[in-house]
Design a protein around this nucleic acid. Sequence first.
DNA 1: TAGCATCATCGTAATATTGCAATGAACAAA
DNA 2: TTTGTTCATTGCAATATTACGATGATGCTA
Lengths: 109, 109
Amino acid sequence: MGATKTDHFTAQQNELANLAKALGHPARIAILEVLLKMEACICGDIVNELPLAQPTVSQHLKELKNAGLIKGNIEGNSICYCIDAENWNKYKELLSAFFAQLNLKINCC
Amino acid sequence: MGATKTDHFTAQQNELANLAKALGHPARIAILEVLLKMEACICGDIVNELPLAQPTVSQHLKELKNAGLIKGNIEGNSICYCIDAENWNKYKELLSAFFAQLNLKINCC
DNA sequence: TAGCATCATCGTAATATTGCAATGAACAAA
DNA sequence: TTTGTTCATTGCAATATTACGATGATGCTA
């Protein structure tokens, strides 16, 4: 069909998958890196840093915002984007906990 | 268009995005959780644990294998899948390093 | 007010992903 | 050899994603 069968999985599985999905595009990684590197949150020249047109960047920003990874504040004419620190750390823990589950003693293949 | 402009981004950005993309589906998270929970790597009854048909699971397994997250060994008639521990830990570090970049002092929005 | 800048949204085209029935390949057992 | 089991692959339909030109909304400035 093409549509993910979200209903059949647990809330935790879907949350982790949604987070990963939001990170699953190099442009979105690049946007986050720009926001991380800037000592203050920059406003709209993310577009200039990326090899993509303005509507495309805007769309990626929207997805990062929906995922809770970034926040956007209106600042006069432009918009100030920055990392959503609270969610960022929550997601950091979520991923960390997921990857910590591996029992190193077991290695059969 | 529809195709991701992979060429315009760095190898690191693409690597991270590919990893995240592989994790970006609840079925694949569920498969990994099954493999993590089993004390030994199970063989093919992953299908029984998931609400998806066998070809669909096979496809997800293929993607996880391509991403380097799991390995598969032929064992007579069936196949033994398990976490690729080496890559797993590499990816764990990769994600950890990415999320560690946040400077907590900066929070403008 | 008129013009400009910034950013979102709409509409559309190209491509990717998801899911499964049907089928195929490989092996084990009768 | 035949039958059954396990898993991959093929082919297809439905849906999602990616990208961008055109356009709209908003606020600043002259």
